[in-house]
């Protein structure tokens, strides 16, 4: 497991418009040079926020990653995002 690398990928997409563009165009290529497990890579490529949070990604980064990809804040976005996490309990996020 490489939680730090997962968080770093989320961080890059959130903060960096060109990284977000690259991820949108080719998520697998964007993730290729990163040191991730298969499960992490798949969850990141699929924008699977539930799996990411279950794996211990930082919830705030995961949210901002999804927010960047959604293009901006709205209540429907939040409802959809939180809906995907229902039943999860957040655990350790130490990197």
């Amino acid at each position: 497991m490489s939680r730090y690398e997962v968080d770093k990928a989320l961080w890059d997409v959130y903060r960096d418009a060109s990284a977000a563009k690259q991820y949108r165009r080719d998520p697998v290529g964007f993730l290729a040079p990163r040191d991730l497990s298969d499960e992490e890579r798949e969850a990141l490529a699929a924008r699977d926020v539930r799996r990411l949070v279950a794996l211990g990604s930082h919830p705030f980064l995961t949210y901002n990653f999804a927010l960047r990809l959604a293009g901006g804040f709205s209540m429907p976005f939040v409802q959809d995002y939180v809906g995907q996490l229902q039943g999860l309990v957040v655990g350790d996020i130490t990197t």
Binding site: V53, H58, P59, F60, L61, T62, Y63, N64, V78, Q79, Y81, V82, L85, Q86, G87, L88, V89, V90
Partner: peptide
Amino acid sequence: NSIGGPRML
């Protein structure tokens, strides 16, 4: 506050 977590709402 639970921004980004399942209890956000």
